[in-house]
Design a protein around this nucleic acid. Structure first.
Lengths: 361, 361
DNA sequence: CTGTTAGCGCTTTCAT
DNA sequence: ATGAAAGCGCTAACAG
């Protein structure tokens, strides 16, 4: 820049004012600076600029898995919003590990990002030190997809509980009474009853717990007892799901419908159904979370709960920008609506199958 | 940091040496600095550090669509490699627009990234100004997924041509002779012949063009004439594909097999097949690029060309790190192997269907 | 081993 | 409207 100023025959400050687009510069000086900059192929050094201003025009995004299509969608939403506002996004992937998440937030703090968008893996208050640290440094944080217990923070989420409740309701309205849920909490020992299940959910990822609560809500409304045997307790992977769903299908009184809480759970479930020769919707009805593009082209087309990933990301970015521009109103939690996309994987249970083991009518 | 030094009763430099992990510091001094830093909750300012060292430990990643599962996988691979080496990734999404890509590279230059990993949308030499600019500033660039004509740069790609050739060969070995390809080049007017098709490919995204070339290779080997009518010329979207494949199916001599070059093309194709009541593999055999998790759980399970996305990302990062650490050897193009995953969507053509319209045997 | 002294490239007073 | 000078937080070079 000093060179540009010299070349243009003006002081460093004038060159800076022109190139940085601030202050007042006479048209002549401006033109000469611009010409000189062009000639010397000048590019500003954002580091130096950020150094003095304290503003990086960068926001950090921390997600559990950058390779997961769900988070990829969220990132794309954030990226779009950043594009529109000349912000830049730094993305860090935590592999669902709290330790990595803490390191990631540390990196973002050190890099002086203007705000952080966080899909946290933190489950308990004692895992939130990194979040508190960022907060104490006045870095705005917006949670996305997952709320964190005990923290009063802006958040953009979907109504997981309502979405799950609606899905299960739709099963019930068709006459289903034995309704399974994959995934439940990944416990060593299966929860003994309704209460044990909900207690376990308290120590669990918020979004998953909410879905389980919605499942229970719908059963409660209909007066159907919650049977923990119908809720898988396996590791949250596609492979583990196959075995767990197998076991559920082998029950004396197997389910006539199943709700899956994530794409991996859905794929694992479909694999298990296929291996067991159980057909949908003839033998079992299926609803899944996440409306993947392929859901509509398979046989039968799958009924899905569509989550607006792009919109989650965009909204999160919007809230971040608002905080950056000084909005210090009370925290806001934005809930983005989901859509239950009805397709052919849901049908009434076969005659007699909706009756539970007890009543052999 | 000045405060930390004061608190510890040492000079600024000693504090800096301790906190920055360089130079030599006596154990006592070190301990006191660490204690003071802890007490004052000191965090280094990476901006300032980068400012003096000229090193940001950050690499930029520019992809066409951060929301696309393919690029998400690549990003995840890059993120993993960064994790292992304490680098940070900045991700920019270009929506396949060269103008956005140029802006993105500009941002990365200004942010002083140590290297750039780029899946470029540039097709012609005159669209590469931004790449040349980065090169002239000695910023290492590694292309990923797509090479760019006329540029001698490190690249990590898959062997698109061979993968497509193998897939088409496998059709031919089973007796197929009418083999379709979605997507071909998105031309206004359909290419008149084999030559026109290949010419058009020259002005097209490298990876797509290579796949088309592989398709043609296999037909050539077998002495099967290339029929441009069997190559869709539609926009590259799922919707457009549906119509284009419809048209192909309606040909007097319709295909008995089809190769799709991307997930969107595959989904669009499946939608068209389903609407037309054409069943696989009975009426038509299908092979797709990208091995999505759902491919194995649908009916029939799909034969796919698996692309190791994570490995693409990891390898690209590896090359970037090598250049950063001063490796100035000649450029290297790493080709990551794909795998043809055989499943049930491929079978021999029905009797008589492998014979082309001409020979009514 | 340690402290002092310069900058890195920019923005920001503050005079002029 | 412009230039000179100070300083952001850190590392680098040098003398002790």
């Amino acid at each position: 820049m000093a060179e540009v100023a010299a070349e243009a025959g003006v002081g460093k400050a004038t060159a800076a004012r022109t190139l940085g687009n601030y202050g007042a510069v006479s048209p002549q000086a401006r033109a000469r600076v611009l010409a000189a900059a062009e000639k010397l192929r000048y590019r500003p050094n954002s580091l130096a600029r950020s150094m003095t201003t304290g503003i990086t025009r960068t926001i950090g995004v921390v997600v559990a898995d950058a390779g997961n299509p769900f988070f990829a969608g969220v990132m794309r939403g954030v990226a779009d919003a950043c594009d529109d506002t000349d912000y830049t996004a730094i993305v860090l992937s935590t592999d669902e590990k709290v330790a990595q998440e803490q390191a990631a937030v540390g990196v973002l703090i050190d890099k002086q990002v203007d705000a952080i968008i966080l899909a946290s893996a933190a489950l308990r208050p004692n895992e939130t030190a990194h979040i508190l640290e960022a907060m104490s440094r006045k870095i705005p944080i917006v949670l996305v997809d997952r709320r964190v217990g005990g923290l009063d923070l802006d958040a953009v989420v979907i109504d997981n509980r309502e979405a799950a409740r609606d899905a299960v309701r739709s099963f019930i309205e068709l006459g289903h009474r034995r309704i399974a849920f994959a995934w439940g909490p990944p416990l060593r020992e299966r929860a003994p009853d309704r209460r044990g299940l909900l207690d376990a959910a308290g120590y669990w990822l918020w979004s998953q717990a909410e879905r389980l609560r919605g499942y229970v809500d719908a059963l409660d409304e209909a007066g159907i007892p919650v049977d923990p045997m119908l809720v898988t307790h396996c590791d949250h992977s596609e492979e583990a799901t196959v075995g767990a769903v197998d076991a559920v299908l082998a029950l004396e009184s197997p389910p006539t419908a199943i709700l899956t809480s994530e794409t991996d759970a859905l794929v694992g479930t479909l694999r298990a159904l296929r291996a067991a020769g159980v057909r949908q919707p003839h033998d079992i009805s299926v609803i899944g979370f996440d409306d993947s593009s392929w859901a509509s082209v398979i046989e039968p087309p799958l009924t899905m709960i569509a989550q607006p990933m792009l919109e989650l990301g965009r909204a999160a970015a919007r809230h971040a920008f608002a905080r950056i521009s000084g909005d210090d109103g009370s925290t806001v939690v934005e809930t983005i609506p989901t859509t239950l996309v009805s397709r052919a994987s849901v049908a009434p249970p076969r005659a007699g199958e909706s009756v539970s083991a007890g009543g052999g009518r």
